[in-house]
Design a protein around this nucleic acid. Structure first.
Lengths: 331, 331
DNA sequence: CTGTTAGCGCTTTCAC
DNA sequence: GTGAAAGCGCTAACAG
């Protein structure tokens, strides 16, 4: 089918080992033949077969990335950091989208193993990460991105989610809010911050003010709608992330109320759209691109030093970005 | 390193050919040994090596996808359609982000060839697609996504961009606009629609009302700013896509004008954020997910019938989505 | 400097 | 029903 090293060897009248060496620019081959072979290869339209090469060298120069939602701008930004850093180091990334489905996550993980990627970075779908951890047995390093698992026997790079929630809550409290609801997604770390701050200020934690769905705009919209119908209207809503917040705002306005006049809203992540003039979402920033870069750095280090089994934990600082979806209220 | 078929053979005391057959569920192997081998494989933590398999079978069950901007929600939606359709058919997709850089596009293309993907779908960076076309020689089918190249000797799935522009322009004209500016990105098909409609209605085409930059929010913002400073204020702006439109709106409001009261704006694509209450961007819809699906269908067909060299062209219908960034004006 | 050869892990005839 | 052996395209000793 496609032209191989042997085809070139035949035409050039040399052994195919020589061709191999010439093409990979080995020092121990005369410049003359080197040039001749390389020109010939180009002329014949030769494309090296990474499959065959990978089989013998055992390195594919590929890392796998599994993210749960490609349509949430948060993850593309992380992915961008991952890709850039990987590329800089001669690696390619295999980007997979688990779409918040556990079975897809598992399938992709398996496929990545089978393709012999040299490392994996993953934004997990759920807190059930057991299937991700026996990666250790497979000898391919794995690092969690923007997520801190309950178990410490793994690598992760995450923003301090608890602290993020605390910052956001302290801000709302400082603004005078007491009736604060929480609308979250799959992961629940931020909820702890919410609860703790409520308790710190002796505000009763009302289960009916806590809703859990998905990290989706539509989900935020639905939950906010339910929340508004079923309860006394809160003065503030802490949303699990920015796209949930966007859905929440949508629901609030459809309900005939306004943000921030009737209800303040704060999100998490600081996706690019949050900064839009029309949106001006107050949110807690996560260093998305940086998270991606760090994940790859850790991975590359682990690939280079396979015997170093020390786990790497990186916790990055969140930052409150005050825009226009929150308002102070008089008590 | 990792356990191979031979390791299993040794333990099971059979030839490794038998193991291979048992694992791939061949009919010509006794159910008893089949079960025994399969259990053993699982127990030993065997993961098939897709690299080795690919080398002999010549199929990697992988297709490559190169998109120019992962942070523009348009492309993730296309990617989603591609991924879903590929997955349904037992294919995995290798997603690459060229970041609007031609050299990155070339590099990725090369890497995909080397990895022996069975097909490629690409949203090209520029109108220079020559390097993409000799894919024919490489025997790996390629289809353009959401882009119609000048050359017809290729496969593509695209929305009728010219028509999209015409629809948008007719709408603006109908609203009474005559002073309409255009702010575009890398590709220029939509510009033709803009110009043609202007001429149809005997409106002079003013070069200073036409700006070209990138398909980026920031670019839309900058160009709109320049446009507003340098010219008589237009009553409407046709933006090259939705994220440009978002940047344009930003600039208009910073300039002290309002959308749609002073200036109407229409975009293209209908990204999810365009529908947000706060945004309500009038735009021309493209069937993003559908485009992705169709690309894969074409690809799979070409993979299955490698001798069919007929080129497939699919042009999908755009649709005007009227929201709130346009206003009728009295002439 | 170049050629010969083994072998990566697997599938697939061809025998038995 | 199972084994032996060839070979996918390439790299990497080992010779010469």
């Amino acid at each position: 089918m496609s032209v191989t090293i042997k085809d070139i060897a035949k035409v050039a009248n040399v052994s195919y080992a020589t061709v191999s060496r010439a093409l990979s620019n080995h020092p121990e081959v005369s410049d003359k033949t080197k040039k001749r072979i390389q020109d010939l290869a180009k002329a014949m339209g030769y494309t090296p077969n990474a499959i065959a090469r990978g089989l013998v060298t055992k390195n594919t120069h590929t890392i796998g990335l599994i993210i749960p939602d490609i349509t949430n701008p948060f993850f593309p930004e992380v992915a961008q950091g991952i890709e850039d850093c990987a590329n800089r180091n001669g690696y390619q990334v295999f980007l997979c989208n688990s779409n918040w489905q556990l079975n897809k996550e598992k399938e992709y993980l398996k496929a990545l193993y089978e393709k012999r990627v040299e490392g994996i970075v993953i934004g997990p779908v759920s807190n059930d990460v057991s299937h991700l951890l026996d990666t250790v047995n497979k000898n391919v390093p794995l690092v969690f991105a923007a997520y801190k698992p309950q178990i410490e026997e793994c690598n992760y790079v995450a923003t301090d989610d608890y602290k993020s929630a605390v910052i956001a809550m302290e801000y709302l409290i400082k603004l005078g809010h007491r009736k604060i609801a929480f609308i979250g997604g799959q992961h629940k770390v931020r909820l702890n911050g919410y609860i703790d701050i409520l308790q710190k200020y002796n505000i009763p934690v009302m289960p009916s003010y806590i809703k859990y769905g998905q990290f989706k705009q539509e989900s935020g919209y639905q939950m906010a709608k339910e929340l508004l119908i079923e309860n006394e209207i809160p003065t503030a809503i802490l949303a699990g992330n920015d796209i949930i917040a966007l859905g929440v705002i949508q629901a609030i306005e459809e309900f005939g109320l306004s943000v921030p006049n009737n209800i303040s809203v704060v999100g998490f992540d600081d996706i690019s759209f949050a900064a839009l003039d029309k949106i001006q979402l107050t949110t807690v920033f996560q260093p998305k691109y940086k998270i991606g870069e760090l994940c790859v750095e850790i991975l590359l280090d682990k690939i280079k030093n396979p015997d170093n089994h020390k786990f790497v934990h990186k916790i990055l600082e969140p930052k409150l970005i005050i825009r226009k979806t929150c308002k102070g209220i008089s008590i």
